[in-house]
Design a protein around this nucleic acid. Structure first.
Lengths: 107, 107
DNA sequence: CTCCAATACATATGATAATTATGCATAAGT
DNA sequence: ACTTATGCATAATTATCATATGTATTGGAG
């Protein structure tokens, strides 16, 4: 594993929360949106995304809802719950603390 | 595992490089110094530290050297190599990029 | 109208890193 | 003398991530 990949570890859940806090999104959309918003920097693999989404739903952070559009196939939209919103807030704070400490140590 | 612990994943190697770039340090010293410099935020467990040091030495990032002081017991000092110095530089850059992207996505 | 790429969700498997637990030994303070 | 801190080390377990693969639908190109 590259250092770049190693660095990204632990960011998955927070990123998902941040994205669905904007609007409900479905899995595939999350991968595209994340890539787009970060100019290609973040690329979430499906093998990581879907299990994480399932775990987060079980923990009550997000809530899934199937939707069938007139044209196109069914999509599973994920909505941020109240618990998830709170989690996002505290995780943002933890990230800020971490980044401050990290920057200080790296000079 | 807490979110806080999860966030710290992947920072181990960079932190070690940053510390020994200041001056050669021995294992136990690294744990104390890291804790001190981060006001208790970072705490590296020995079960993670020593295997990581050994791996990093095998990769040529650091070089170990036993030293026996007049008083006190033997210590294994780790020195930053040229390869390690270069690695630190690029890892710092990768961390900066990551943190910028992260901050942008978290708003 | 057929084929291929993109979309969309999902899981199994293996690798890596981190935690936890434990071991051994020396040195310093009370 | 005994306890605590120092100092290095590994084994066993757990968690997370990457890789690979599977299935199915849809839209567009030829």
């Amino acid at each position: 594993m590259t250092v770049k990949d190693q660095i990204k570890k632990g960011s998955t859940e927070t990123l998902i929360l941040a994205l669905v806090s904007d609007r409900p999104m479905y899995g595939y959309e999350l991968t595209q949106e994340l890539k787009k918003r970060s100019n290609g920097y973040f690329e979430m693999k499906e093998g990581l995304l879907y299990p994480t989404l399932h775990r987060m739903e079980k923990e009550g952070l997000i809530k899934a809802e199937w939707q069938t559009p007139e044209s196109g196939r069914k999509r599973k939209y994920y909505n941020l719950t109240a618990v998830g919103k709170e989690a996002l807030g505290s995780q943002k704070e933890e990230w800020r603390t971490f980044m401050t400490q990290m920057q200080e140590l790296l000079g």
